[in-house]
Amino acid sequence: MKVFLSSDVQHAGLASDLALALAGLGIKTFSVRDLELGEGLRDTIEREAQSADAFVLLVDAFSRRDPQVRFEWRSALKSDWTGTKPIIPVWLDRSPLPGFLTNRKALDGSLPPEQIAQQVVRLLNKPTDSIIPPTSEQLAARETRLRDLEQIAAALRAESLTQREHQR
């Protein structure tokens, strides 16, 4: 089991403590913070994301604006072809989580790293617990989005066919 651990520079200390705590529980981690900056960095991130079994993301309002962190998140999402890799946010403040993490069980970032690590391991052992099933409001919002798309597309299609008739 290998976990991709993502954090910004500001939380490199916590990431390092968490990596240590996870290692103590038999979980190997990869963190970009352990690497030197260089041209091959992006390749390494994408490769490590592809081979990772799970992701632990340290998230706060600042990390969301960090281009490096966002690249790591995109790489994580890109690697999750079947939606089966656990993506576990560690919530460091109470700022709203990015949309893609709103259906994930977020861990409390104010807890000691050892405790967070134990919770991570628990979720890794039962990955289904890391996903929050969609609420009825989320399902209704999705239905509205799909209906809107259908209506707009149908209207554009009708308009396009009318234009074509005029051109004849």
Binding site: R74, S75, K78, W81, T82, G99, P134
Partner: peptide, 22 residues
Amino acid sequence: IAETCGWLRETQDAQPPYPVPA
């Protein structure tokens, strides 16, 4: 598909649930 889904999901306006890339 993998690249587009990875980017889209990270945007502010993509809200789950959505289908997996596969």
